[in-house]
Design a protein around this nucleic acid. Sequence first.
DNA 1: CCAAAAGTGTTGCCGTTACACCCATGA
DNA 2: TCATGGGTGTAACGGCAACACTTTTGG
Lengths: 225, 225
Amino acid sequence: MLAAVLQVRPLDESDPAGKSALHVLLWQRALEPEQGKWSLPGGRLGADEDLTSSVRRQLAEKVDLRELAHLEQLAVFSDPRRVPGPRTIASTFLGLVPSPATPELPADTRWHPVDELPPMAFDHAPMVQHAHHRLAAKLSYTNIGFALAPAEFALSTLRDIYSAALGYQVDATNLQRVLERRQVITRTGTTARSGRSGGRPAALYRFTEARYRVTDEFAALRPPG
Amino acid sequence: MLAAVLQVRPLDESDPAGKSALHVLLWQRALEPEQGKWSLPGGRLGADEDLTSSVRRQLAEKVDLRELAHLEQLAVFSDPRRVPGPRTIASTFLGLVPSPATPELPADTRWHPVDELPPMAFDHAPMVQHAHHRLAAKLSYTNIGFALAPAEFALSTLRDIYSAALGYQVDATNLQRVLERRQVITRTGTTARSGRSGGRPAALYRFTEARYRVTDEFAALRPPG
DNA sequence: CCAAAAGTGTTGCCGTTACACCCATGA
DNA sequence: TCATGGGTGTAACGGCAACACTTTTGG
């Protein structure tokens, strides 16, 4: 079991207001094979747990990560030669951490931008690509954004999160209307303080549901009615 | 490994022109546990093969099925108590067989309509549901229909296939335009003979590509341009 | 000529994008 | 008051569904 844990975070740690990008949590291998290369966190399945609980446990134990807002299965990688030695099957997962959280991490683990991956161990690079692709797709037709955003947020913040996760600029105006029409986000009624350089204070929103939901099932060939 | 192999076939074997429905290939257990109940075909992974090849091999060996036009991973079922005895993990697959094919089957295997499943062994019923749901979703935004349809077909035939797979009536008029605009289907130029009771002869179509392809990636939040 | 089946034209609706315009605040 | 960021209005576009209408065949 391997998990691609994704989070939108600032590119420069010391500048929380700077540009942000989608990051993946990696740890650096201390031993051969592939020593020094970076790999996805994970571990072996226990005898009395299912895959999902196991991933949660591994992430809590090994990288002390407990803030997972979403976790779902991706593909199983089963090529007999994907790793040296005895045949190992990897079941991969996509995990999402909300944006402002900054969990404590062990020394050998670090967040890396998904667009500039370091040298990756084994077949872990395509796994990250797969996770990224799945996330981008689901941002368009589900409410999965709740797992990347803070509990309350201004629309400009949400725009930055979507832009980072999708890899292109998203217009806040249209993002608002798409998500409001689908009732994915709701106004809280409160407003944020205006920023350093003035400007109108932003209305705050939250995701209507904090559970994964498909909001736009069919693009074509809809059922009649 | 377990495979939900789906095909659109006539409800009444002796009447190929009658109503058709989506069927799943099931196999009746001869031994305890769950003797007499129906289960998905599958088997254990060999030492030197990946999951996909293994599924293909199992289906060829055990139910003599070689006409799979599409095969893809579904979810992994890993609840420690999903089957009695030692813990077993099931990786499930969706397989599709084109419509007119009628492969020879062993005596203990049979096609069952997905809407009227017989008593199912273990957790196999939700697996079939999952496969059905995935198929219905992908009919809307991919060219996956090629794996259910004959090489050449009239639009009314394709309408029947889509209707059976989706579970509701599809309008041939709009189906044509949706699939032609996306260049999923192409006219062959030939026409079929007209039916028994007259009527204009139908133009024949084929799927432009016989490989799986996503044709309608984003419903919303499209990249600018 | 009539019935049946296939295919086309047309209309209306809805969701999305793009962009111009108005609003509220701090300096 | 100006600059800055937040928010609304509006128009254009495109995809889809529904349905009336035309075309082509067999009896």
